[in-house]
């Protein structure tokens, strides 16, 4: 095990090269609905038990199923109302289970990226061939179902291995949603190729908001607005990214949908907001800002190395 994931260098906010977005937008705003399939009786994984209660965990399973039967359609209608295209964090097997959802999203020109095969199959303990197999399955299945080649990844149930990012880049993906340390896209150090992280947020994620932080639906709208306000203000100096990750089984409930409606109305009423998708943010950043960021981060690291050299018993390479 490592003490540092080794995926990115320190890049303090002051002094960063300026990030600009299309048409002078201050904030790149994207919404990422997680469209997930959880299995009733998944196989065991040595590192994580899928359900809290003995199988069948009827409450936990049926709660997630609500999202696909009812919540998704309510959430999609609100997104349509505000002209927001979704970037779908997709349990890939859902293409087989519920093609009607895939068709409805594809017809809206929403983006699909992979969130693993099922949200009850974890990457913990996979060898390289197994991890490559689920990435390939993701690429092939989404291509077959939608004609899109996936560019992004959010690990199933946020389960990773040390080699995940290297494999994603090697197999031609462009971005990950798994790194939460920034308000801008960042270069990710991978064995081969150019690969970036796009800010996806756990702080704005409805699962965390509702189930971990016990926030009420209307208060969630206030938090989303406050998050947007500050990123919009700061985005005038250096472009920022705001993401709202959603789960229809939560936000698509009748008592919660009004809060989302309120927040999306507020955000999309602002000028200078680029309402976009994860792929478009990653592509723009790779095309316009990636090289400058890598050079800047290298320069920061060189400066830090000079400071570290003042330490007694300093070893080169620190």
């Amino acid at each position: 095990m490592r003490s540092d994931p080794g995926l990115y260098g320190y890049n303090p906010w002051p002094g960063r090269p300026k990030v600009t977005w299309p048409n002078g937008a201050r904030v790149a705003f994207w919404v990422a609905p997680n469209i997930e399939f959880y299995e009733l009786a998944p196989p065991p994984n040595p590192s994580r038990t899928p359900w809290g209660r003995p199988i069948p965990d009827v409450v936990a399973y049926s709660h997630r199923d609500y999202g696909n039967r009812a919540g998704h359609w309510r959430m999609m209608e609100v997104m349509d109302k505000h002209g927001v295209r979704g970037s779908i964090s997709l349990s890939i097997a859902l293409c087989d289970h519920h093609p009607e959802i895939i068709e409805a999203c594809a017809a809206r020109n929403w983006e699909f990226f992979s969130h693993g095969i099922y949200n009850t199959r974890y990457c913990y303990g996979m060898d390289e061939a197994q991890e490559r197999a689920i990435i390939q399955d993701s690429i092939d299945t989404v291509m077959r179902a939608t004609g899109q080649r996936i560019d992004g990844w959010l690990a199933p149930a946020l389960t990773h291995t040390e080699r995940t990012m290297d494999l994603l880049a090697d197999m031609g993906l462009a971005y990950t949603c798994d790194l939460f340390g920034d308000d801008q896209p960042q270069p990710v150090k991978v064995a081969k190729g150019r690969f970036v992280s796009v800010p996806y947020s756990l702080e704005m994620n409805d699962v965390i908001v509702y189930n971990s932080n016990n926030i009420t639906p209307r208060r969630y709208a206030d938090i989303l607005k406050a998050n947007f306000d500050r990123l919009y203000e700061e985005g005038a100096e250096n472009g920022t990214v705001m993401c709202i990750p959603l789960h229809a089984f939560l936000v698509g409930q009748p008592h919660r949908i009004a809060g989302l409606d309120e927040a999306l109305a507020y955000i999309t009423a602002h000028k200078d907001v680029w309402v976009t998708t994860g792929r478009e943010i990653a592509r723009w950043y790779l095309d316009h800002h990636y090289d400058a960021a890598v050079a800047h981060i290298d320069a920061v690291e060189a400066k830090q190395a000079r400071l570290r050299a003042r330490l007694p018993n300093h070893r080169a390479g620190g």
Partner: peptide, 18 residues
């Protein structure tokens, strides 16, 4: 590594997994 079965999906089909 996880057993090969971990990447087998016998209920991956149209509709529900039951």
């Amino acid at each position: 590594a996880l057993p090969d079965d971990y990447l087998k999906y016998p209920m991956r089909r149209y509709g529900m997994d039951h």
